[in-house]
């Protein structure tokens, strides 16, 4: 294998990881964009969706239906979980405290979901039956291509939804100023609930594409995945929908290329094991140099 082919191969590997990060980052950014809350439990919604797939995929197959249809069950379960988490945990805290206490509640929620899943399903990793496996297209992994396509369509769909529907307008209004929206007759609570339902539903779609690529469900799977997607969302500009897509793909590329070449470039001082450190290093640099991210909009209010 010559150097160029190897490089192209590593770029494809990066896109493969990045496409999943992008899907997750979309959910992060969606919720942040509306209620200015970094939902650290978002990674664990992926886990909830993945367990739903683990249980519903065999059911679908035994009833002679295509396995990917179980994504609708996952969307329903994730959206319900998201709304419940919002109603039971975030809303009461938001009413009394500030953004910081909501953020800490989100971290608590993440730990709660992880440990609840372990109690319910055990610590053993579970294997999901192959949902589908697409053939390569011109040497490009078919699953990756579909993941990117889904990501782009969600990105376009969300942008249109937020810009052109009544609910979307309400969302933007709530994100600008909650009190004023209330005065304008917008049902703020309903809008936030819908935001959470959509954001969590997106997590279900991300978990489908994750499962297609990685096949395995564990109670802790959402932890690292969520953190990396968070970095992706910040890199792209948290709150910006196209930014999440771009950030996800970029983080995937950085991860892959740093794993592939850091050892050769630095003479073995920085090995492939450093890739996570590099990814989180990016988070620090972005926050220092350009806190709004690559294509994030300027907002007065910051967490």
């Amino acid at each position: 294998m010559d150097g160029l082919t190897l490089f192209i191969q590593q770029v494809f590997n990066g896109l493969r990881v990045g496409s999943v990060y992008a899907l997750i980052a979309l959910g992060y950014t969606m919720v942040y964009g509306i209620i200015r809350l970094i939902n650290f439990a978002h990674g664990d919604f992926i886990m909830v969706g993945a367990y739903t797939l683990f249980f519903t995929v065999p059911l679908m197959i035994s009833h002679g239906m295509p396995a990917w249809l179980s994504v609708f069950a996952a969307i329903a379960v994730c959206a319900t979980t998201g709304v419940l988490v919002e109603k039971l945990a975030y809303k009461p805290v938001r009413k009394r405290g500030n953004n910081m206490s909501a953020l800490i509640t989100a971290i608590a929620m993440s730990l709660f979901l992880e440990n609840m899943a372990q109690t319910l399903f055990g610590a053993n990793p579970k294997q999901v039956i192959t949902i589908f496996n697409l053939p390569n297209l011109l040497g490009f992994n078919g699953n990756t291509l579909v993941t990117i396509l889904i990501g782009v369509s969600i990105m376009v769909g969300l942008t249109l939804f937020v810009k052109h529907t009544k609910t979307g307008q309400a969302m933007r209004a709530v994100s600008e100023d909650k009190k004023a929206s209330l005065l304008m007759g917008i049902n703020v609570n309903r809008t936030i609930t819908i935001t959470f339902a959509i954001g969590s539903g997106l997590a279900a779609i991300a978990s489908l594409m994750y499962i297609v690529q990685y096949n395995q469900v564990t109670n802790l799977m959402g932890y690292m995945l969520g953190l990396k997607a968070f970095v992706a969302a910040v890199l792209g500009g948290i709150g910006s929908i196209p930014g999440a897509m771009l950030g996800g793909l970029l983080i995937g590329l950085v991860e892959s290329l740093s794993k592939a070449y850091s050892s050769t470039l630095t003479g073995g001082i920085i090995t492939s094991a450093f890739s996570d450190a590099i990814v989180f290093g990016i988070l620090i640099i972005v926050l220092l140099v350009k806190p709004t991210g690559l294509i994030g909009e300027k907002t007065g209010e910051k967490v």
Binding site: Q9, G14, R16, M224, K259, S263, S272, S275
Partner: peptide, 21 residues
């Protein structure tokens, strides 16, 4: 010789591509 930082990484494709090469 390729490495990952932990044993709980989920994607090793990049390192494995180097090994194949």
């Amino acid at each position: 010789v390729e490495s990952s930082s932990t044993t709980s990484d989920t994607d090793y494709t990049t390192q494995l591509t180097n090994i194949v090469a």
